[in-house]
Design a protein around this nucleic acid. Structure first.
Lengths: 190, 190
DNA sequence: ACTGTATGCCAACATGCGTTGACCTCCGCC
DNA sequence: GGCGGAGGTCAACGCATGTTGGCATACAGT
């Protein structure tokens, strides 16, 4: 019997090596400073392989950011815990998946990255806010508020690495930010 | 009598033209994509002038981000209004001065920019938090929380330009974010 | 075992970058 | 009126980048 996880082509191991290296380089250096040559060297192959398998640097980047963010179903948890659960889940996401760091780093200077970020926002955070509110304009605003706090914490904690933000224990982040997004989602509009 | 604001050297007009063009380019494109050639063209002079007056691209960037952020004295306003006043002031700052956009755009991919951002944080937001709290570690955390919300809103509103965040009237931003930073600064630690 | 093709490397290309030094020009001063 | 220096342009350098085509090699199907 054949292993269903086995690579279908011999080149698949190289393909994913390139993708992994690219993920890290884009996440830590941003789009411009992550050079094809550096990515290729990290992956242990020739730069021309990148072009063969992904067409161009832009194509490689597209492959890197083409991921699905999955948020937990918030219907199953008590309404009062939504804020805390959400913050906890976002912290997991940021710490275990480099694609969000990539998006944040690149979205700030690259329009394609910004567009992808907006798409994630529209596909994940917006529907979430719509569970708590009637009019769609109100939901959009609340989603934007949640995004501002979540991305802001990610920025100072993981990207800019402000000491106090980076050192804060996870539980404290949840305790402080949880009520904030809870209010953004469920409080009466001011 | 001589005008005290008159340029002391004939080249001062060119110097500031370069600086103005650099501010805009760095703010909108980030460090890597803001080329010396493009800045020079915007300023209407030759690229070599940039080198003559600022030594290098790095030197020009240093000159651009070498600014003082001034926050209002919060001693004079009622304690309960601190959050709202602060948010209002930050919105003014972001809308009237491109240097913060520059810092945010560059700080995400450039270590010098990130360092400058941390310095602004330590020099401006941290002392502010120290007015409300006794231990310096607590103050640092509260300052980081305020920074996360303020920078997060700047990110989604001015840089990533999420529709709902960019369109939100200024008064609504103050009404939503004011209580948040108010709580970060003055509420009992959880 | 033979052959075609997928896989990979190497060398080179064109381009745009930051940066440099030689040259020109015009203002202010003796 | 001539002169020295500051202000400015021009062309070029060296380098790193993304990208390309040609060539070797090793695998898979017959």
């Amino acid at each position: 019997m054949t292993d269903p996880d086995a690579p279908r082509r011999r080149s698949d191991v190289t393909r994913t090596a390139i993708l992994d290296a690219a993920r890290e380089r884009f996440a830590s250096d941003g789009y411009e400073r992550a050079t094809v040559r550096a990515i290729a060297q990290d992956a242990g192959i020739d730069p021309s392989m990148v072009m063969r398998y992904y067409g161009s640097k832009e194509g490689l980047f597209s492959a890197v950011i083409d991921v699905e963010l999955v948020l937990p179903d918030l219907g199953a948890i008590p309404v009062d815990d939504v804020g805390a659960v959400l913050i906890g889940h976002f912290l997991d996401l940021w710490e275990n998946d480099s694609v969000l760091q990539t998006l944040l780093r690149v979205g700030v200077t690259n329009e394609a990255g910004a567009a992808r970020m907006r798409a994630v926002f529209a596909g994940q955070i917006l529907p979430l806010a719509e569970q708590f509110v009637v009019t769609s304009q109100d939901a959009a605003r609340r989603a934007a508020l949640v995004a501002s706090q979540v991305l802001g914490m990610a920025l100072v904690r993981y990207v800019l690495r402000f000491g106090p933000a980076a050192d804060m224990p996870r539980a404290d982040v949840v305790a402080w930010l949880g009520p904030t997004v809870q209010r953004y989602l469920t409080a009466k509009a001011p």
